[in-house]
Design a protein around this nucleic acid. Structure first.
Lengths: 152, 152
DNA sequence: CTGTTATAGTTGCATATACAACTAAGCTCT
DNA sequence: AGAGCTTAGTTGTATATGCAACTATAACAG
């Protein structure tokens, strides 16, 4: 009897306290806010974040992109492929087939310009969903992870 | 000149403050913690969360599941299909073809029993990644969203 | 210089997610 | 009862994600 009671209460905490379930929920909701705001432009937040990174970095290697954005190389590979097709990115390096360096195109910069406004709207909606405190804490945690990574 | 400066600083804030990028990062890291902990059992957190919900609810309709877990019906549909195939779930209702009620199977309960330990490990790792405060805030936000939904 | 090793990037496979179009089954109104 | 409406669930398409296997190329060791 004891054992089944324990099991039940543990399963209840899996339901009531699971961190992953909660962050996944928020992830879905927030990703949605941004992706639907961006949908008129035929792009999603993920690709915008890649574009922003490349815009600021000037010319980045593949590996740097994956490390900084903490994106799996296969995800990056496929995204870059799609973005090249849409004309937002190009490969800057000619010499080496390997070690591709990525660069934003004029069309990519234009896209960034166009989405700024909807990004701001989305950011505001996300802020009101998470609240000031929640947003603050979240950003601190994420920034901490990035900083730690850079130091490495 | 002014305009391009504004653009640059806005793009910088897209890089440095975007909530979606941050929550997506944490989502990937945390999902990873749980999924790799669960991988010996051939299941991922998402399906476990469905199973837990159905276990606690006894017998649930499809719609209730989607509403409570805030899961898109197509995602739910395909997950349930896979879980039926693995024998963890079954459809309880016979009468109506529509309005399927879901029920956990003995194999499903057994699985829940087996994964409890690794779930606890993963939960602890996630806690130390987010910190006490972060976890607290996160849970409060998510629970608030659920409560609001229930009241509806 | 050549064979081995390390590394960059691609591709296959599986799950998760969302939206839209579709199907089917129950419900309602006349 | 039959026509149209509503709702449940499925399926198609696209992106995101992760792991593992593969390919091609660069670097290195002898």
């Amino acid at each position: 009897m004891k054992k089944s009671v324990d099991r039940l209460s543990l399963i209840k905490s899996m339901s009531q306290q699971c961190i992953a379930v909660r962050i996944r929920l928020l992830n879905r909701m927030i990703t949605n806010i941004y992706d639907s705001a961006l949908s008129p432009f035929g792009v999603k937040l993920n690709q915008i974040s890649i574009l922003v990174f490349i815009y600021l970095a000037g010319e980045v290697g593949y590996d740097a992109l994956c490390r900084r954005l903490k994106m799996e190389k296969s995800t990056a590979s496929r995204n870059i492929e799609r973005m090249k097709k849409k004309g937002w990115l190009k490969i800057a390096t000619v010499k080496a087939e390997r070690k591709k360096a990525l660069k934003i195109t004029p069309a990519g910069e234009e896209l960034l310009g166009k989405v700024q406004e909807v990004w701001e709207d989305a950011q505001e909606k996300a802020l009101s969903l998470l609240g000031e405190e929640g947003t603050d804490v979240l950003c601190k945690i994420a920034n901490g992870i990035w900083k730690k990574d850079k130091a490495r």
